[in-house]
């Protein structure tokens, strides 16, 4: 389990990174390395050139912008978990990060790496989907933005083109009176989720003004449960309503069966977690309204 040979280049700017990626037809970016290096040690990935972006200081910031937070691609899981800005605006991030692997891995793993790695059961792709993130991408043709629904194409597959670099995720603030929650079911602490669910519920005068429900581990990419969301919006909050929406969350899902869970079991878990998470989000929304 030793990686195959490769060349290595540590870059210090986004431009340099983009240029380096173009220099080789088989270049790979390394960020935290927490997904890439295991695959290289297994020799499942054998890049010719490894472009290390860890020294691009500009990518490590969490900044407030008008209308939202910008989280640099190199922000480590632990930083997104502990930053005052995320705790203030998106406490759901810390709630989700708690489920990502373990301390030492959270110390190094990055948001950008998680998003580009695009594991359908991973927390960051789910959060990006839940929080309507806009992903900032730099490439040979300059900068572009992508939304999660277009960015995540399949398990470990994204719309990132050759020579492109993910630089940040922009998270628009939640509407006033919103609460968010995350939960997942995994066999052991820190394992990738069998099913993960995130919810945002925004209340106005006791009526659900906005509802989002995102699901992980049940498709090729993280998904939004649109039927459930639609069912909630415009209706007064009640336990019954949330329970109904939770059962609608399975609509259209065709989860895979793998070693640890069958498609049926995943479908069984979705409404349970959806109900719990919607309930928590709704309670937090009520708290936010008080």
């Amino acid at each position: 389990m030793k990686p195959a040979p490769f060349d290595y280049l540590a870059v210090t700017s986004i431009d340099e990174a983009v240029r380096a990626l173009q220099a080789s037809c088989d270049a790979k970016i390394i960020a935290g390395g927490q997904s890439l290096v295991p695959m290289m040690n297994f020799r499942l990935v054998q890049p010719e050139l490894l472009v290390d972006i860890n020294r691009i200081a500009a990518l490590s910031q969490i900044t407030e912008t008008t209308g939202g937070l910008t989280i640099g691609a190199l922000v480590r899981h632990v930083e997104s978990q502990k930053s005052q800005l995320t705790i203030r605006h998106f406490p759901v991030i810390a709630e989700a990060m708690h489920h990502v692997a373990h301390v030492a891995i959270r110390n190094r793993g990055t948001i950008g790496g998680s998003l580009v790695h695009a594991d359908p059961a991973a927390e960051w792709p789910l959060l990006a989907t839940l929080l309507d993130a806009e992903l900032e991408i730099h490439g040979p043709d300059g900068e572009r933005r992508a939304i999660p629904a277009e960015f995540f194409l399949g398990p470990l597959v994204t719309d990132l083109q050759e020579g492109e670099l993910l630089t940040a995720a922009h998270l628009p603030y939640l509407p006033a009176g919103a609460g968010a929650a995350f939960d997942e079911f995994a066999q052991r602490a820190g394992d990738f989720a069998i099913v993960s669910v995130g919810a945002v519920v925004a209340l106005r005068d006791g009526v659900i003004a906005e509802a989002r429900l995102a699901l992980g581990g049940v498709g090729d990419t993280p998904l939004r449960a649109q039927a459930a969301e639609t069912h909630l919006v415009g209706k007064p909050l009640s336990d019954g309503l949330l329970a109904q929406a939770a059962t609608l969350a399975v609509e259209g899902l065709e989860p895979n069966t793998d070693l640890h869970a069958s498609s049926e079991y995943r479908l069984h878990l979705v409404p349970i977690l959806a109900r719990r998470v919607l309930a928590t989000a709704a309670r937090r929304a009520r708290g936010a309204c008080e």
């Binding site: 709630e95 708690h98 929650a181 329970a243 069984h268 349970i272 309930a279 928590t280």
Partner: peptide
């Protein structure tokens, strides 16, 4: 069937995630 088997397991807001805070 869940809900029936777990007779009396309350659904809804009372049954929430163990949110961290």
């Amino acid at each position: 069937i869940p809900g029936k088997a777990g007779a009396g397991f309350p659904s809804g807001i009372a049954q929430e995630t163990n949110a961290m805070e």
